[in-house]
């Protein structure tokens, strides 16, 4: 298997209680992968550790693409964004080009054209000059997706990009992400809606503190694995 991300024996904790315990999994290149699990299962932490934003207590992460600047793209959870910040949709999209520019260099004509093109791809070109806070949740997510597209990364990490998003935006986002995978890029996404896993993704990692199952959707996304992930927490809560 040609892997895009691999984590081995990952343990992460904030304070005394572990959030992730001995997590090992691999995601193949070109796949559209979901990370699912109940609330507090450690999905966001797993993603942040993969990105190097959280230091694990033990274990390692390998992302072979990481050598090049900007090869790893990230779309944060929408709540983590300051909606009052004075920045336009276009400027957010242009930010995607900054990764490959590196320090000090300014975006040129080609970068600006790319940012505009990416806004068009997500259907947000009419809102280019709007301040980010004036857009709806779904529109904001599309702008962040445009930023990710502008980055031209090989692997994308998205943290619940469909949360609080209208149906039109959800369809647009999914079709664009599928397009990225068709080009051989990898998309890893924290997802909360179990009903759509089978329709959207080809790879899924079900986690809850540890890995419950990880593999192709048709192989591992079955009732037994889902029950194991979601009832383990319920059992723990009852104690």
């Amino acid at each position: 298997m040609n892997t895009a991300v691999e984590v081995r024996h990952l343990t992460v904790s904030y304070g005394e209680k572990p959030v992730l315990e001995d997590v090992s999994l691999a995601i193949p290149r070109g796949s559209f992968a979901a990370i699912v699990g109940p609330n507090g299962a450690g999905k966001t932490t797993l993603m942040k550790t993969m990105l190097g934003l959280v230091k694990p207590l033990a274990g390692e992460v390998s992302i072979p693409a990481r050598g090049r600047r900007g090869a790893v793209g990230y779309v944060p959870q929408s709540e983590s964004i300051d909606r009052d910040f004075p920045i336009s949709a276009y400027e957010v999209a242009l930010m995607g080009r900054y990764a490959s520019l590196g320090w000090f260099r300014r975006p040129g004509k080609a970068d600006k054209a790319a940012a505009e093109e990416c806004l068009r791809r997500v259907g947000m070109e009419k809102f280019a000059l709007r301040q980010i806070g004036e857009l709806s949740g779904g529109q904001q997510q599309r702008v962040f997706l445009a930023r990710a597209l502008a980055q031209d990364a090989e692997i994308y990490f998205l943290d619940e990009p469909l949360k609080g998003v209208d149906a039109v935006s959800e369809r647009a986002i999914i079709s664009i992400l599928r397009g990225l995978c068709a080009e051989g890029r990898t998309v890893v996404m924290v997802h909360h809606d179990l009903r759509t896993v089978r329709d959207y993704f080809d790879w899924v990692s079900i986690i809850n503190l540890g890995v419950v199952a990880s593999g192709a959707v048709e192989d591992v996304f079955c009732e037994r694995n889902i029950d194991r992930a979601y009832s383990r927490r319920a059992a723990g809560a009852a104690v």
Binding site: L51, G52, L53, R69, G70, V72, G73, Y74, P76, S80, I81, D82, F85, I87, V92, M95, Y98, A99, R147
Partner: peptide, 9 residues
């Protein structure tokens, strides 16, 4: 604007 994105970039 986005500290995490800056870190990733």
């Amino acid at each position: 604007f986005d500290r995490t994105a800056a870190l990733v970039m």
